[in-house]
Design a protein around this nucleic acid. Structure first.
Lengths: 120, 120
DNA sequence: CTGCATCCTTAATGATACTG
DNA sequence: CAGTATCATTAAGGATGCAG
């Protein structure tokens, strides 16, 4: 029971859905990749190593729908499409970059903990 | 190509797996729930509204394995088990709490963006 | 190049019943 | 109370072929 208007701890609160979207590895990597400026679809696919075309497309659509990034299509041949963070999306850069840094900085500690756990 | 020792953008880097674990709604909510102190299994299940027993158990095991929290079992009747963040887990409180706050603070903006997108 | 449609496989989550 | 085990369901992810 909370009197806050929005509470991610409440299963049916829309903010819970919102949290589920941003607390996601693909979202995190895409936002990190776009942190320094717009990227084309292909560049994004290379930067976010290992992502499939389908998942990249799906995730980008979701993020566009939620107002986190914009999709700009240029009528050229061959086609060129650029994705860029919106003002809203830029407010996500810091929290998500922090998660990425955490993963990189603490990976050795985590691996050690895992080894120790498994050897018990 | 990066010369950093660990890089989440590299698909096979262990830090990528680590990012996948923490960039997860259940992990975020559990860490947020434990931010102010240890909680019992049942209290955790109530706080993280909507989580099933199985998912809570599985996620707690994973987090314990990675050294993010500890599980302490008291030989009482009925049994009592407490979960508590480790020093490592406490370093996750801020970044994950930031995600939760973002979801709550920006939910209306996101909902508006979504409506606008869908009406196009 | 971008990316949609389709089909398929795997992983995540949920429901239920049962035990120390 | 805090699980475990099992089964069923759903969601996420991947592969391929084709189109603008």
């Amino acid at each position: 029971m909370s009197d806050r208007p929005w509470d991610v701890m409440v299963a049916t609160c829309p903010s819970r859905t919102s949290l589920a979207k941003i607390a996601n590895k693909w979202t995190a990597m895409i936002v990190i990749a776009l942190a320094e400026g717009p990227l084309r679809f292909g560049a994004l696919r290379e930067t976010v190593d290992g992502i499939s075309g389908k998942v990249l497309t799906d995730t980008l659509r979701d993020l566009e729908r939620d107002g986190i990034l914009t999709r700009t299509m240029y009528n050229e041949m061959p086609p060129r499409v650029e994705y860029e963070l919106t003002a809203l999306g830029r407010t996500l850069r810091e929290p998500l970059a922090a998660l990425g840094r955490w993963a990189e900085e603490h990976v050795e500690t985590v691996l050690r903990a895992r080894d120790e756990y498994d050897s018990r």
